[in-house]
């Protein structure tokens, strides 16, 4: 089975979409086929991937409809640079989906159902979720094999991350997830070492997570080049290939690559 990686966080602006887009590019560049699935009604993956706004029936919302026939609406990303990365775009229609999920008899499991009925061919699927822990993150949780938690090194995001872990255990049990998704790790984001509270939180985050046996990846530094790159719909690696932040993603990509090789060989 493909690796299905859900990016979850319990606070806005924690860098989910940025991480999702960059991982999609880097894993594609490493030779894996990738599908980036945007479960956020804001559809920010489209912006950061340089795609035009999708037609409402060409989005993940259409996949979650009962009349879905298996024709996944995939759009190539950065096709000049990589050949094997596609996006399943999200948009405002997902707001309606949220309400439908609540009433649907398979609501919490719908994404997993679609993927087992009509599997995507890619090696890895990346689910980008909205910030609020509602029905959409829940379908990502029940469909994923692994979780990655981006966390901004600020009080609000740290608080949210603690609650996210509670949410994770509560819902893994409630939804009877078997096997349970694995937490791949936390990714500290937008880290600025000149800011005291950032240093402070980062320093206490790692021991805190290790108590819970959760891995803490190397922090991804803050840089306004991320914003500049996203305005052009590019990952920073295509916009400023020599920027020091490019290397910050390496440990995560290495970890996922290991998983992918393991799952291919087994």
């Amino acid at each position: 089975m493909a690796i299905r990686l859900a990016l979850l966080s319990n606070a806005g602006g924690s860098g989910k979409t940025t991480l999702a887009v960059h991982l999609a590019y880097l894993l594609g560049n490493a030779g894996f086929s990738v599908a980036l699935v945007d479960l956020d009604p804001q559809g920010s993956c489209s912006l950061m991937g340089g795609l035009p706004r999708p037609h409402p029936d060409q989005t993940i919302a259409a996949v979650l409809q009962d009349d879905f026939q298996g024709n996944w609406p995939t759009t190539p990303l950065w096709s000049d640079e990589v050949k094997n990365v596609v996006a399943v775009q999200g948009e405002m229609g997902l707001v309606k989906t949220i309400n439908e999920l609540v009433l649907h008899e398979r609501g919490a499991y719908l994404l997993g159902d679609r993927l087992s009925d009509y599997p995507l061919p890619q090696d890895i699927l990346i689910f980008d979720c909205p910030a609020t822990l509602g029905p959409l993150p829940l379908i990502a949780l029940s469909a994923c094999t692994h979780l990655l938690v981006p966390i901004q090194v600020e009080p609000k995001s740290a608080d949210g991350a603690g609650k996210l872990i509670e949410w994770f255990y509560h819902n893994s049990r409630r939804l009877r997830l078997k096997p349970e998704p694995q937490i791949l790790g936390f990714v500290p984001n937008q880290y600025d070492k000149t800011i005291a509270i950032h240093r402070n939180i980062l320093a206490s985050l790692e021991p805190q997570l290790s108590k819970l046996s959760i891995h803490c990846f190397q922090a991804i530094r803050f840089s306004s080049e991320f914003k500049n790159a996203s305005a052009l719909g590019l990952p920073i690696h295509l916009y400023r290939p020599l920027h020091p932040a490019c290397k910050d993603f390496t440990p995560i990509v290495t970890k996922i690559t290991q998983l992918l090789k393991k799952s291919k060989s087994s």
């Binding site: 009080p155 740290a158 609650k163 872990i165 255990y169 509560h170 206490s204 108590k211 819970l212």
Partner: peptide
């Protein structure tokens, strides 16, 4: 910031 306080619920649920 006292992270251990923010994460105590997480520890218990784990």
């Amino acid at each position: 910031i006292d992270l251990s306080n923010l994460f105590s619920g997480a520890e218990y649920s784990q």
